[in-house]
Design a protein around this nucleic acid. Structure first.
Length: 152
DNA sequence: GCCAACGTTGGC
DNA sequence: GCCAACGTTGGC
């Protein structure tokens, strides 16, 4: 089992949106970065996800999710006019993929980025590093466990 | 294949 | 809203 961090701006999808969605699952569309896409391709059903709110006040981890459907073609890349349209995508190769995630838990309070930066053991966590813009990041088990504790 | 220009992300 | 840090594009 692997662990991940997935960023979303609250306007796009928040942990509450996930908790209130039908079957408490949401498709994770719109990833248009190759490194992030490649991580999505590695995701397996049951992998755990730290749900991260970016561009928020404050930004931070708001809850837990898990992978309920592994990578499949992101059809929005084919939809002309859609904000996730990519003119290089074809039906045979949409270039981009999405996964479905399921709600697991909403933290009683957000674990702010500042808290993550100060927490012992998270010094090497990708999200705490300067200039880390990647929207999908791998997380180690020990990092995951520390964040879980901070969220309780 | 280099790299300047441009666009985007996301903390602050 | 600013802007640093990145990623991507495209001329050469």
């Amino acid at each position: 089992m692997r662990y991940w961090l997935m960023k979303s701006e609250p306007d796009e999808a928040s942990i509450d949106d996930l908790a209130n969605a039908p079957e408490r699952t949401l498709p994770w569309t719109g990833v248009r970065n190759y490194q992030a896409r490649n991580f999505m391709r590695e995701m397996k059903r049951g992998d755990k996800v730290l749900f991260y709110a970016s561009n928020a006040d404050p930004s931070g981890v708001t809850g837990l999710a898990e992978i309920v459907r592994e990578a499949y073609p992101d059809q929005f890349a084919l939809k002309k006019g859609h904000k996730y349209f990519d003119e290089k995508a074809t039906p045979d190769d949409t270039i981009w993929v999405m996964v479905d995630i399921g709600w697991v838990a909403t933290f009683p309070h957000i674990v702010a980025l500042e808290t993550l930066k100060e927490a012992p053991g998270l010094e090497n966590m990708v999200v705490t590093k300067k200039g880390s813009r990647l929207s999908i990041q791998p997380v180690t088990k020990s990092e995951f466990d520390i964040v879980l504790k901070l969220g309780k």
